[in-house]
Design a protein around this nucleic acid. Structure first.
Lengths: 265, 265
DNA sequence: GACTATAGCGTACGCTGTACGGAGTTCAAG
DNA sequence: CTTGAACTCCGTACAGCGTACGCTATAGTC
C-alpha cells in the first residue's frame, strides 16, 4: 500500500548513485554488498510482490544483512527507488554483443511510424514486466543514464522529419503519455487476477448480483447497452493488449496527419 | 509516500458504501459523523497534502474524534479511498440547479469531437484539482454511481456514429488513457514547485552543473540538441497544458480518421 | 425500568523508514 | 609494528502507520 515519489532525495547524492562514483575509498572492511546487488534485489521484490512489499528490511533479509546496513550504500529508500527506476530502463542490448534482442531490428530501421511503434511496444512490455513502475510517481525527473538514453532514442525516432525541436518533444511526450495511460488497464486486469485468483469473467459474475441491485439502466442507458454487448462479445478473456494496439494505431494516425502537414509546408 | 489500491476491500460492504444503504438502524447513541463528512475531510487532506499525508488518525483529528471511531462508518482505509474516488467524479451540476458550470453547454451539444474534447478537459481539470488521483492504483474497477455516470457520459459522446459497442468502448478507453498519462506531466511540475519551492527553470539551473559533469553530448546527441533548444525556447515557464492540448488534438485527429472510415462503409 | 444494539474510544500489535551510537575491520601513516 | 583514522555493519530506539479487541456510555425497544 505504498506509492513512492521519485527524486525526493538529495540531488547530488542521487546523481552520484545514478552515474556511479569513479573511485571508492579503500579504508575499512571490504563491503559485502554493492549498490547494484541491492538494486537488483529490490527490483526482484517489487516485481514479485509490488511496491507494497518493498521495504528496507525485506531487501536486507534477501541479502542476508540488516536493514541499517543498506544505508551504507544508499542514502534512503527514495534514492533506492530512483536507481531502480533508471535500472529497469536499461536495454538488454547494452549488456552484451550489440544485438538488441528484438530480432536484429535496429533503432534506426524503418520509417518513423515503425520506429515509434517499436518504442511504444517496448515501453508497454517494460510496464508489464515491472508493474510497480506505474506506482512510482515522478514528482521530479530522474536524470539517470538509461532514462536519458531512452529519451534520446525516442527523439531520434522523430528526427529528420522537418519538425522543430519543440514539436519533436511534444510528439515524444504524446507517445509516452499514451503508453503509460494504456498500460494501466492491462496491469489492472493482471493484478486483479493475481490478487483475487479470479479471471475477469469470474470477477464480473461475482459482482453482477451486487451491481444489479443498484444499477438503474435508465440512469446509465449507454453504459448498460455497451456493458451488455461487451458481456456477449468478450467470450474469450478480455485482452487489454487489444485496447492498447487499437489506441496506438489511432494515435499514430493522428501523428501521421500532423507530420504530413508539417512536411508539406 | 503511499500508494493505495482501489477495490481491496470487501465488495459487498464497498458497494453499500458507494451506493448508500437505504435504512440506518436507529438504536444506540446518535452518530456524530456521517460517511459523507469523513469522505469530504479525507479528500480535503489528500488535496492539500497528498495521499502521503492521508492517515486515519489525521482524518479523525480533522473531525474531532479518534482514529478508531472512523471504523464505525468505514470498514477500512481501502474502502475510504474507493469512496473518495467515486466522490470526486461527481459533477457539480448534480448538486445544484441543473446548470453544469460549464457555461451552459450540455453534454449532448456539438459534434462528437467537441464532446470528447470537453470530456477530456473536464477530466484533466479534475486531476489537477485532485493530484492524488494519480496515486490511486485501480487494481479493481470501482463501480460507484459517479464513475458509472462518467462512463455513460463518455460513451454517449461517441454514440450514434455507426460504431459497434466494442469500438465505442475502445475509443473511450483511448481518450481516458491519454488524459491520465498526459496529466502526469502537469501534476509533476506543479508538485515539484510545491515541494522544492523552485520554479522549473530554477530547478533545472540548480541541476545543470551536476548534469554537466556526467552528461556526454556524444552519447545523447538528439537529447542534447532538443534540450538546448527547449532551454532557449521555453523562456516563459514551461506550460504542461500546452503539451496536453497538442496531444489531445493529434489524438482526436486519429480518431476522426477512424470515425470517417467507419462511416464511409 | 430492563434489555440490547450501537457509537466512540483506550490500548496494543506488528509493521514501516531511519537517526544514533557503538563494535569490529582494514588500510595508511609514524 | 604500532597506532589512528576511515569504513562497514548492526542493535536499539522512535515516531508514525492501519487496525483488532474489548470496554463504556448512550438511546431506542419491549
Amino acid at each position: 500500500m505504498t506509492t513512492e515519489y521519485s527524486g525526493s532525495g538529495d540531488p547530488k547524492r542521487s546523481m552520484e548513485l545514478l552515474w556511479g562514483v569513479p573511485d571508492r575509498p579503500r579504508r575499512g572492511p571490504k563491503p559485502k554488498l554493492t549498490v547494484d546487488r541491492i538494486v537488483r534485489a529490490a527490483i526482484g521484490i517489487a516485481d514479485a510482490e509490488g511496491l507494497a512489499g518493498l521495504s528496507m528490511r525485506r531487501v536486507a533479509d534477501e541479502l542476508g544483512v540488516t536493514a541499517m546496513s543498506l544505508y551504507t550504500y544508499v542514502p534512503g529508500k527514495a534514492e533506492l527507488v530512483d536507481v531502480m527506476l533508471d535500472t529497469v530502463h536499461a536495454r538488454p542490448a547494452e549488456a552484451d554483443d550489440g544485438h538488441d534482442g528484438h530480432g536484429g531490428v535496429a533503432d534506426g530501421d524503418g520509417d518513423w511510424r515503425g520506429r515509434l511503434e517499436r518504442l511504444a511496444r517496448e515501453s508497454y512490455e517494460r510496464y508489464r514486466r515491472h508493474p510497480w513502475l506505474l506506482q512510482v510517481a515522478t514528482s521530479v525527473p530522474v536524470l539517470g543514464p538509461n532514462l536519458l538514453a531512452k529519451y534520446d532514442r525516442e527523439l531520434s525516432a522523430v528526427d529528420g522529419l522537418g519538425l522543430t525541436e519543440v514539436e519533436m518533444d511534444l510528439l515524444v511526450s504524446l507517445v509516452t503519455d499514451y503508453v503509460h495511460g494504456a498500460v494501466r488497464g492491462a496491469v489492472e486486469t493482471a493484478q486483479m487476477q493475481r490478487r483475487t485468483g479470479m479471471s475477469t469473467e469470474q470477477w464480473w459474475q461475482s459482482y453482477e448480483p451486487l451491481l444489479a441491485q443498484v444499477f438503474d439502466p435508465e440512469r446509465y442507458p449507454v453504459a448498460a447497452r455497451v456493458g451488455a454487448a461487451a458481456g456477449e462479445e468478450y467470450q474469450a478473456p478480455y485482452d487489454p493488449t487489444r485496447s492498447f494496439e487499437f489506441g496506438l494505431q489511432r494515435m499514430l494516425d493522428g501523428i501521421e496527419a500532423f507530420v504530413r502537414n508539417r512536411a508539406g509546408r
